[in-house]
């Protein structure tokens, strides 16, 4: 009897709670549904569509499914060279950006200079300037009639203007310029969270500043470097404007090829396959980052 009553009160208590839970569930679904719909229609569907087209022999009106587009994208020497160039560009840009950004992030995280806020503003403001404006700025600096050549010729160091544009390295300079803010922010966020006590303790125990940095601060800030590198890498791999405007046709990267295949040659299946390969490469980098994070946090 007592058990039955307890059981009943349990049920009575449970019922309204279940209704509240249902109400909460409805609210949750209602709140999230628009976002799921937006990303479903605007991101997932297009990507699946692209994936499907990459296996078609022609578009529109396919007659058969085929792996031929992937065979072309992955083995054709032309595409292979461009893939290699794209990923090495991303690697070089990531390394240079990380090295250049670290001291700035250090300054933002550690200095108590009264200019700190202004420096912060100056670092992130370029993010809000149109990429076309910034790239045109670089053509003014690097062009044949540009600032550097005007200086070099004016000072009599060279007689003919140097060809600074249309090269791998001009693209690197342009990309590094665009991506430094992302890297500085990532590293500074992590550096700011490190307890300065660790470094002080090491100094008290007699570690030299160099040793202190290499053994304490750098390992603790690796996560910031890693997340910044992933962002920089992904953005470089997918960049179009800088390689086109500073490379001027001499620096073909996957982004340029994809656009060419799809818009100029109207060969959508091949373009879709190349785009999928690019996405796959990015995904591998992200997975490596995930693995790294897991191993890093375990230590």
């Amino acid at each position: 009897m007592a058990v039955a009553i307890a059981d009943m009160t349990d049920k009575i208590e449970q019922r309204p709670r279940a209704r509240v839970d249902l109400a909460r569930l409805t609210a949750l679904v209602a709140l999230l549904a628009p976002a799921v719909a937006l990303l479903g229609i605007g991101l997932v569907w297009p990507f699946l569509k692209m994936l499907a087209i990459s296996f078609q022999d022609r578009f529109p009106d396919p007659t058969a499914l085929t792996f031929a587009n992937y065979a072309t994208a992955l083995t054709d020497p032309y595409f292979l060279r461009i893939t290699l160039r794209t990923f090495s560009l991303a690697l070089v840009v990531t390394l240079i950006t990380a090295v250049l950004s670290y001291p700035v992030a250090w300054f933002l995280a550690r200095s108590n200079s009264r200019w700190k806020h202004l420096v912060f503003l100056a670092v992130i403001s370029p993010l809000m300037v149109s990429i076309i404006v910034r790239t045109i700025g670089w053509t003014i600096i690097l062009g044949n009639e540009g600032m550097i050549n005007a200086l070099l010729v004016g000072l009599g160091i060279v007689t003919e203007p140097l060809r600074l544009m249309q090269s791998f390295w001009s693209v690197v300079v342009g990309m590094v310029h665009i991506l430094i803010p992302f890297m500085v922010l990532s590293i500074a966020t992590v550096l700011g969270k490190i307890d300065p006590g660790y470094a002080e303790a090491a100094a008290v125990l007699g570690a030299s500043p160099v040793r202190n940095f290499l053994k304490i601060t750098l390992p603790l800030s690796v996560q910031g470097i890693a997340s910044g590198s992933v962002i920089v890498f992904c953005l470089t791999v997918g960049a179009y404007v800088t390689p086109v405007m500073l490379g001027r046709g001499q620096v073909a990267v996957l982004a340029v090829t994809i656009h060419e295949q799809m818009v100029v040659l109207v060969d959508w299946p091949t373009g879709a396959a190349v785009a999928t390969v690019l996405t796959g490469g990015t995904l591998i980098v992200l997975l490596l980052y995930g693995l790294f994070l897991r191993r890093h946090s375990r230590r």
Binding site: M50, Y240, T276, T279, T282
Partner: peptide, 15 residues
């Protein structure tokens, strides 16, 4: 945020 812009553009165009 990190999806390659060029792929996203191409995919949306295909859709």
């Amino acid at each position: 945020l990190i999806f390659p812009a060029i792929v996203f553009g191409a995919a949306v165009a295909l859709m």
